[in-house]
Simulated scan of single mutants.
Amino acid sequence: MTTKTNKPLVAITGASAGIGKCLAYTFADAGYPVLLMARRKEILDSYTDIEEKITAKVDVREIEEIKQAIKLAESKYGKVDLFINNAGIMPLGSYLTQPLSEKYDTIDIDVKGVINGMDSVLSDMVERKHGTIVNISSIAGRYTSIDHAIYNGAKAAVNYITEEARKENAKNNVRFTLIEPGIVQTDLAKHSTDMDALKEYSEKIEAVNGGLDPNFIAEMILKIYELPQEVSIKEVLLTSTKQVG
Results as ranks from 00 to 15, higher is better:
residue 155 K to D: 06
residue 162 T to D: 02
residue 200 E to F: 07
residue 20 G to R: 00
residue 37 M to F: 11
residue 137 S to F: 06
residue 212 L to D: 02
residue 71 K to S: 15
residue 49 D to W: 02
residue 9 L to F: 02
residue 232 S to V: 05
residue 133 I to H: 12
residue 1 M to P: 06
residue 190 K to F: 10
residue 73 A to P: 01
residue 35 L to G: 01
residue 22 C to E: 08
residue 29 D to L: 12
residue 178 L to I: 13
residue 44 L to H: 10
residue 212 L to F: 01
residue 171 K to L: 04
residue 227 L to A: 13
residue 205 I to T: 03
residue 166 R to Q: 10
residue 216 F to I: 09
residue 71 K to P: 04
residue 92 L to F: 13
residue 178 L to D: 00
residue 15 A to W: 01
residue 120 S to Q: 03
residue 171 K to W: 11
residue 242 K to Q: 10
residue 62 E to H: 10
residue 176 F to W: 12
residue 15 A to F: 04
residue 217 I to G: 03
residue 206 E to K: 15
residue 108 D to I: 05
residue 229 Q to K: 11
residue 152 N to I: 00
residue 30 A to S: 04
residue 215 N to H: 09
residue 235 E to Q: 10
residue 166 R to E: 06
residue 203 E to K: 13
residue 19 I to W: 03
residue 40 R to Y: 08
residue 119 D to N: 15
residue 241 T to A: 11
residue 183 I to V: 06
residue 193 T to H: 12
residue 170 A to L: 15
residue 88 G to A: 12
residue 202 S to Q: 13
residue 213 D to P: 03
residue 167 K to L: 05
residue 54 I to R: 02
residue 42 E to D: 13
residue 40 R to Q: 15
residue 168 E to C: 05
residue 56 A to D: 00
residue 97 T to W: 10
residue 155 K to M: 09
residue 15 A to C: 05
residue 115 I to K: 15
residue 46 S to R: 13
residue 29 D to K: 14
residue 15 A to L: 09
residue 231 V to C: 07
residue 37 M to Q: 11
residue 68 Q to Y: 07
residue 208 V to S: 07
residue 226 E to P: 00
residue 8 P to L: 11
residue 10 V to Y: 03
residue 97 T to C: 07
residue 108 D to W: 07
residue 187 D to W: 01
residue 120 S to W: 07
residue 64 E to C: 03
residue 90 M to Q: 05
residue 241 T to S: 01
residue 191 H to M: 15
residue 68 Q to K: 14
residue 144 T to A: 11
residue 112 K to M: 14
residue 243 Q to S: 08
residue 200 E to Q: 02
residue 63 I to L: 10
residue 159 N to G: 08
residue 66 I to M: 03
residue 181 P to F: 01
residue 106 T to L: 14
residue 60 V to A: 09
residue 151 Y to F: 13
residue 238 L to K: 07
residue 83 F to N: 00
residue 107 I to H: 10
residue 114 V to C: 04
residue 115 I to V: 15
residue 93 G to E: 00
residue 116 N to D: 04
residue 45 D to P: 11
residue 21 K to W: 01
residue 109 I to K: 12
residue 155 K to P: 05
residue 175 R to M: 03
residue 125 M to V: 08
residue 16 S to R: 06
